[in-house]
Design a protein around this nucleic acid. Structure first.
Length: 291
DNA sequence: ATGCAGGCGCGCA
DNA sequence: TGCGCGCCTGCA
């Protein structure tokens, strides 16, 4: 991979397994929006960045080499060999062979644990556009103003401190629905215990998931998503309706309970469970498998 | 219109 | 332990 910096852009040459559509539409993130030119603009850690793929180059706009080294390299998980992961999954069976081929440019972003905690609480029994809207409202009203990019104003995701004195009603007003009290709960917990959610990264996967499900509004599926996308725990397997459908289609009998589907997957995919989940999820949702 | 969407907490066996 | 039910909200 060759890295070039020029007028507020970072250009990555010779980078493999990075397809913006696959990365941003595979269900892991909510703050990346597609622009008319097919590029994606996202808000990460008080930065606004635009990602475009052009002639096999990945172009990161509105950034610099320092941020690339400090933030983007890890955020886009560029230190990981996804080809090796796909090769290991491909040989497991024909379904993974197709799914990894279909979503061959997927990468699992290393996102922030706190943001994932709140975001996936909002995701429960909800639809993507509404999840995005609620997160956007919370950020606009309570997050730090970052600046303008291409004529639009951007705001960072609110910290626990930002949300400290925000009432349940105020949260509800951001269109979170019945999840308002759950969000208030985690905000209060973190502020009162002076606890950093990021410290959960130090726990092993089981302990991490256990620590997360203690929050109201965080069940098994949401905890797995937070662990996978926000705590970099790759031996998890979040089972949502789409994953349930694709698993029933390919691997397990119908009306097997969700924990049993999860257990089956962890035993089959092992340390690569989280990656397998992403390829299968994207494959199932884009093709409407089992719907 | 009524069911339902990228689940969860609760009450009840 | 395991199940059924209601839930914000908006859209087909």
């Amino acid at each position: 991979m060759r890295i070039t910096e020029e007028n507020n852009k970072i250009i990555l040459e010779g980078i493999s397994d990075f397809e913006p559509k696959h990365v941003f539409d595979c269900g892991q993130c909510f703050r990346w929006l597609r622009e008319e030119d097919g590029s994606y603009t996202g808000v990460v850690q008080s930065k606004v960045i635009n990602v475009k793929k052009e002639n096999n180059l990945i172009i990161l706009d509105n950034t610099n080499k320092e941020d690339f080294e400090n933030i983007w390299f890890d955020y886009f998980d560029l230190g990981r060999d996804y080809k090796e992961i796909k090769d290991k999954l491909k040989v497991m069976d024909e379904h993974l062979d197709k799914a990894t081929e279909f979503g061959d440019g997927i990468r699992i972003l290393q996102q922030d644990g706190w943001e994932m905690l709140v975001s996936f609480i909002i995701s429960a029994n909800n639809r993507i556009p509404m999840i995005q809207r609620a997160i956007n409202n919370l950020s606009e009203r309570y997050g730090k103003y970052i600046g303008e990019y291409k004529g639009k104003k951007y705001y960072a995701f609110p910290t626990p401190q930002d949300l400290k004195n925000v009432s349940v009603e105020d949260i509800r007003a951001c269109q979170t629905g019945f999840r308002d009290k759950y969000i208030k709960g985690v905000v209060d917990y973190v502020n009162e215990n002076n606890e950093d959610i990021l410290s959960y990264r130090k726990l092993n996967t089981d302990e991490c998931v256990k620590a997360l499900v203690k929050f109201n509004g965080v069940g098994p599926k949401v905890a797995d998503c937070i662990a996978l996308f926000g705590m970099q725990k790759y031996d998890t397997f979040p089972v949502d309706v789409w994953v349930k459908r694709v698993m029933e289609e390919f691997y397990v009998e119908d009306n097997l309970s969700l924990p049993k589907i999860r257990k089956f997957a962890l035993e089959k995919f092992g340390d690569l469970s989280g990656f397998a989940q992403q390829y299968l999820f994207y494959y199932a949702r884009e093709l409407g498998i089992g719907r």
